[in-house]
Write a protein that binds this DNA or RNA. Structure first.
Lengths: 104, 104
DNA sequence: ATTATATATCGGTTTTTTTCGATATGTCAA
DNA sequence: TTGACATATCGAAAAAAACCGATATATAAT
């Protein structure tokens, strides 16, 4: 765990929003999973395009944000066909919260 | 509480170090309180010069760091004579940790 | 009053981050 | 296999942050 990378990832409003939207994907991304056959349900995952639309930033920027958040450990991704689904890495986030509580 | 400012303040190694050093001031700043008459003990506070020496950055940089961390709510300061003592704002840090656990 | 010391602020340079459009890559559908 | 779409990566411009030395301010000591 690299706290500095994590805090950097969190110090941008759009990225922070994305992380929080992904706490309740159905609520914030009503179209969620439209592409997916039910049997491959990517629980809690949302594709880049849907996130981009809501974030109102360019495709390349959002793609970059997401991979930055993934490198930091906040998100994980699954590719299904031409789509990449991102979801929160709850285990890592939990660890970070614990780190915050005990080490900060 | 402005989470983005807090995360920005935390996304720098020196600033993160300072915050952690201040968890145990006596341990990390042996000279601590040398200037102070005992009756004005600034519990847990360390003066800018001592922090600067340990942080190995310029005086202006450290001063800037400290005021940035104070604006974010992580630190509080007390001036005693020509010295400014900084210490952790434990209450605020606790709130931030809770915010992290519930909102992030 | 003058000098010394601690900290804050100013002004500017360097480095990093943000952000985009263009392009590359990978996948699906016809 | 060609064309359409989703995402990733590249390269660059603009904005922000890092960081310093110089200077200002405030207090203390002589």
């Amino acid at each position: 765990m690299k706290p500095i990378d994590i805090f950097k990832a969190l110090s941008n409003e759009t990225r922070l929003n994305i992380l929080q939207w992904l706490k309740e994907p159905e609520k914030h991304f009503p179209k969620q999973g439209a592409h997916l056959p039910k049997e491959v349900s990517i629980k809690g995952g949302v594709c880049v395009g849907d996130i981009q639309e809501k974030a109102k930033a360019s495709q390349s920027t959002v793609s970059h944000y997401l991979s930055m958040m993934q490198s930091a450990g906040l998100l994980e991704s699954v590719r299904y066909g031409q789509w990449t689904y991102y979801r929160r890495n709850e285990e890592a986030i939990q660890q970070i919260a614990d780190y915050f509580k005990t080490e900060i």
